[in-house]
């Protein structure tokens, strides 16, 4: 198995493919069933956002290894409209945050970073480490 996997997200069946790959990868790394479900749910939400806001994008899944620890990273890149106020989409007490479901995704993973240029696109990067 390669440690870097790339999936183009354009249709609903791409979401399922990304889920499938995320599940297999996280299983290989050694995540238990519950964490697998969390990682898959996170990738699913991110992929749904791509289809809803940017129409098309790319998700990259990578196996991480650092200081004898293993983990998974998911990177999503699109060229959609971008996010004007990143702080508000991550704020659970804000309506905008709830729209894209990002506060929920952040809770499923260990970390979530967002970079965005309005009109150019959005990059989401998230990690989860094996405990």
């Amino acid at each position: 198995m390669k440690s870097l996997l790339e999936i183009t997200i354009n249709t609903e069946s791409d979401i399922i493919a990304a889920r499938q790959i995320a599940r297999e990868t996280s299983n290989t790394i050694g995540f238990d069933k519950v964490d697998q479900a969390r990682i898959v749910t996170a990738i699913s939400e991110i992929a749904k956002n791509i289809i809803m806001y940017a129409l098309v994008g790319v998700i990259t899944i990578e196996i991480l290894e650092k200081d004898n620890k293993k983990g998974i990273s998911i990177r999503a890149i699109d060229r959609g409209p971008g996010i004007v106020d990143i702080k508000s989409v991550l704020d659970e007490s804000n309506l905008k945050g709830l729209g894209a479901g990002l506060p929920g995704v952040r809770r499923l993973m260990d970390s979530l970073e967002i970079e965005s240029d309005v009109g150019k696109g959005t990059r989401v990067y998230m990690e989860k480490w094996l405990r």
């Binding site: 479900a37 506060p103 995704v105």
Partner: peptide
């Protein structure tokens, strides 16, 4: 069957929380 239920609950837990923060708001 338990795997399936866990999968459903991850999503359900996430959405319930969103719904609750809406209510709080």
């Amino acid at each position: 069957a338990y795997d399936f239920l866990i999968e459903v609950m991850v999503q359900y837990g996430m959405k319930t929380r969103e719904h609750q923060s809406l209510l709080i708001q």
